[in-house]
Amino acid sequence: MDLEQHLYWHSHKITKQDRQYVHGHKSYVLWFTGLSGSGKSTLANALECELYQLGLSTYILDGDNVRHGLNSDLSFSEHDRKENIRRIGEVCKLFVDAGCIVLTAFISPYREERKKVRKLLREGEFIEIYVNCPLETCEKRDPKGLYALAREGKIKNFTGISSEYEPPINPEIIVDTDEKSIQENVDDIIQYLLDKRLL
């Protein structure tokens, strides 16, 4: 007999709504997706600073940081990329249940995987932010030197070069980091959150 057959969900007296009440705000995921070098981490950091100044409880899950710990056992194969996002989705669900606003900065190249994360949460708790930036601009920035290595064939399965990126079809927010400044994009996101009464 498998132990998995004897796993049961335990309900707790303190609910997500109770935790939101303590924090003084709703909890949700701000999911930044886009090519490497598009500005996801920079934008998420700038936005978190503003939310922090407003007294909100936040946490950033950054692609590179998470791969140093929780997902250090995963490669960049298609299978492992999907598992990477699956795990992050489950962590996001826990943060939202804890009453926090979680900001994620992951390339998350596949629409289906992002859709699966959305389904883990209630309506309105997953806010997909497409960090739209032309590949040419991302390559010019190349902050980590990865595009150059990918072009030389030294990095395999690199999104935008040897691996596909599927842009969101109907994201809640689109930001343009090629034409607009980080502050302008932060202001646009803040305005969206205000309009949706999430702040």
Rank of each mutant, 00 (worst) to 15 (best):
T33F: 07
P167S: 10
E4V: 05
K156N: 05
I60M: 11
N65R: 08
G69K: 08
F32V: 04
T104M: 11
L61W: 11
E4Q: 10
V91D: 14
S181D: 00
Y130F: 15
H6M: 08
C49K: 13
G99F: 06
V91S: 14
A98D: 08
K16N: 13
G39A: 07
V91P: 13
E113Y: 03
C92R: 09
K93N: 04
V66R: 12
S108K: 03
F76V: 02
N132H: 12
T15K: 15
Y59C: 14
E179C: 02
A150C: 07
K140L: 14
T177V: 09
D18T: 03
K16D: 15
V131F: 04
V117L: 02
A98H: 05
L70M: 13
N84G: 08
D142N: 10
K156T: 08
L54E: 10
R67E: 11
E112N: 06
H6S: 06
Y147H: 12
L30E: 07
D80C: 05
N84C: 04
V131A: 08
N84V: 05
L51D: 06
S77Y: 13
R67V: 05
K16W: 15
W31Y: 05
L198C: 12
V186Q: 13
I129F: 00
L194A: 01
N170W: 03
S57Y: 06
A46N: 07
P171V: 01
E83W: 03
I85S: 01
F95E: 08
A150Q: 04
A148W: 06
R87F: 10
I127F: 12
Q20D: 13
L43W: 10
T137C: 03
L199D: 10
I14E: 15
E136L: 01
C133E: 01
I101T: 07
N84Q: 03
T177P: 00
V29F: 05
P168H: 00
V96E: 06
T104Q: 10
R141H: 10
R114W: 00
T58P: 01
C100T: 11
E179R: 09
K156G: 09
L74P: 03
K140C: 06
T33M: 06
I161V: 15
I88M: 12
E48D: 08
Y147P: 04
